[in-house]
């Protein structure tokens, strides 16, 4: 327990994160740089879809990370509710806009991929509908945190919303199994191994990992900003009181 409490201290977080940050940022640049090069220049065109399948290298990592970030936000929210670690609340709040951005890019790239292949920009199949619901939960979370000024109440309301919304995560994942959808079943995480050749799997995994380290890098920056911002606000309040 004592070990965990060390990280609950914003000062400790700021010190440790400053050391990790340059490594994470460098790793992100390498992973995404090599990943984009592989995706656009090395990977072969898909047999039936041709070059339009290159959208997959952005669509799938965006969608995976949007869900992973939601999971991280839910865990951080539960941690805050139970142990009241202030850093956990800062992490949840700082994650939401990044997750919302990846949800949005997953939907937009999916739409651009769907038009030439399926024949439509948008359908209300179970996968697209459940991901759209996740986008609105992200938006709702961001709006809720902004609307409640009292820090403790804002954190509590946000944490409860994040936990309630997490029931959507298994629905998104299993939507292609439980219901008939226009989406294909999982290609990578499936029994019997990935149904995708190595030359296409490599850029996909590089970009998926690159998006995750991008999230961690940006998360540290956003958490630092949130901690500094909260300190600024508290000082202004103290100053106003004389």
């Amino acid at each position: 327990m004592a070990g965990l409490h060390r990280f609950a201290n914003p000062g400790t977080f700021v010190r440790i994160s400053a050391k990790v940050l340059p490594w994470l940022a460098g790793l992100t640049a390498i992973l995404i740089g090599v990943g984009l090069y592989q995706a656009l220049l090395v990977a072969p065109p898909e047999a039936y879809q041709g070059n339009v399948a290159r959208i997959m290298y952005l669509h799938v990592p965006s969608a995976w990370n949007a869900m992973m970030i939601y999971g991280a936000m839910a865990v951080a929210s539960a941690t805050w509710l139970i142990w009241k670690h202030p850093v956990a609340d800062v992490a949840a709040q700082a994650s939401a806009p990044i997750g919302a951005m990846f949800t949005l890019t997953a939907l937009l790239t999916g739409s651009l991929w769907g038009k030439p292949t399926w024949g439509t920009f948008w359908v209300w199949d179970a996968r697209i509908t459940s991901v759209t619901i996740m986008l609105f939960i992200y938006f709702g979370y961001i709006a809720l945190r902004a609307a409640i000024e009292d820090g403790e109440r804002s954190a509590k309301a946000g944490a409860i919303l994040a936990l309630v919304g997490s029931v959507n995560l298994p629905i998104i994942h299993y939507s292609v199994v439980w219901w008939n959808t226009l989406h294909q079943p999982a290609s990578v995480l499936r029994a019997g191994g990935p149904a995708i050749v190595a030359s296409m799997l490599v850029p996909l995994l590089l970009l998926a990992c690159g998006f995750t380290t991008y999230y961690l890098t940006l998360l540290i920056w956003r958490m630092q900003r949130e901690i500094v911002g909260r300190r600024v606000r508290s000082l202004r309040v103290l100053q106003a009181q004389g």
Binding site: P10, R230, S234, L235, V237
Partner: peptide
């Protein structure tokens, strides 16, 4: 800038306010 205006007192207060609740709100004061 804020810390420069009243370095000692403000820094101590802010550090304590953020450490106890993590929230820089009235309830911390």
């Amino acid at each position: 800038e804020l810390e420069a205006q009243n370095p000692m007192r403000n820094a101590r207060r802010a550090a304590r306010a953020t450490q106890t609740t993590g929230i820089a709100g009235p309830e911390g004061d």
